[in-house]
Amino acid sequence: MIGRRLPRLILLCGLPGSGKTTLAKRLASEVPALRLCPDEWMAELGVDLFDEQFRDRLERVFRKHALDLLRIGQSVILEFGFWSRAERDEMRVAGRALGVSVELHYLAVPFDELVRRVDARHSEGMVGTVPITRELMTEYQRLFQAPGQDEVDLFDYSQP
């Protein structure tokens, strides 16, 4: 590809309030890349952000769409949170099978700051936000599998 950059698959990993959307918007402009954010689509469609079955179906569609876009040379940012290593591995392997660069951007933020941020964005009335209690964030933190260095080393680029 003379004069063109190879497409990039960028995975944003982190809990609510970690800054995924802020980073995704900046990267979408800089790369440039198409940004796929389930929360925004669900809010726009009027779907409850806690509807896990719908979210799972939407993320499956986004994964397929992302791979189709990568095949035609379009860089893509998946703003899913990627809470499990299995999810991250699946997309890394799929991207590599297409011959594209796969990046992991893990946004590690202290727990109390996450809680402060989700409280602030909800109280400010940001579109597409829902109240997330400290108790729910505690449960999310318990479910979240942070990437270790062994995993980070598998990506073409990763943001600490």
Rank of each mutant, 00 (worst) to 15 (best):
G46K: 02
V47I: 15
V47D: 01
D48G: 03
D48L: 07
D48C: 07
L49D: 04
F50M: 08
D51T: 04
D51H: 07
D51Q: 04
F54T: 13
R55G: 02
R55S: 15
D56K: 15
R57A: 14
L58E: 00
E59K: 13
E59P: 02
R60L: 09
V61P: 00
F62Q: 15
F62E: 15
F62C: 11
F62G: 02
K64W: 10
H65E: 14
A66E: 07
A66R: 06
L67W: 04
L69G: 04
L69W: 06
L70V: 08
L70K: 04
L70C: 03
I72F: 01
G73V: 12
G73L: 08
Q74M: 12
Q74A: 14
S75W: 05
V76Y: 00
V76Q: 03
L78R: 02
E79Q: 12
E79I: 02
E79P: 01
E79C: 13
F80H: 15
F80N: 05
G81L: 02
G81T: 05
F82W: 09
W83V: 06
S84Y: 08
S84G: 04
S84V: 00
R85G: 13
D89M: 13
E90Y: 11
E90G: 09
M91A: 09
M91Q: 12
V93T: 14
A94N: 09
G95P: 04
G95S: 08
A97H: 07
L98V: 05
G99S: 08
G99T: 12
S101T: 11
L104G: 03
H105W: 13
Y106A: 15
L107A: 05
L107V: 07
A108L: 08
V109K: 04
V109N: 03
V115M: 05
R116M: 08
R117N: 07
V118Q: 03
A120E: 15
A120H: 09
E124R: 14
E124M: 13
G125S: 11
M126H: 14
M126N: 11
G128K: 04
T129I: 06
T129S: 10
V130E: 06
P131T: 07
I132G: 01
T133W: 10
R134Y: 06
R134S: 09
R134Q: 15
E135Q: 13
M137L: 15
M137G: 08
M137C: 10
E139K: 12
Y140A: 08
Y140M: 14
R142V: 00
R142H: 12
R142M: 01
L143R: 15
F144A: 00
F144G: 01
Q145W: 00
A146G: 06
P147I: 11
G148P: 06
G148N: 08
G148K: 03
E151P: 08
V152N: 04
L154I: 01
D156S: 10
D156V: 11
S158K: 07
S158G: 14
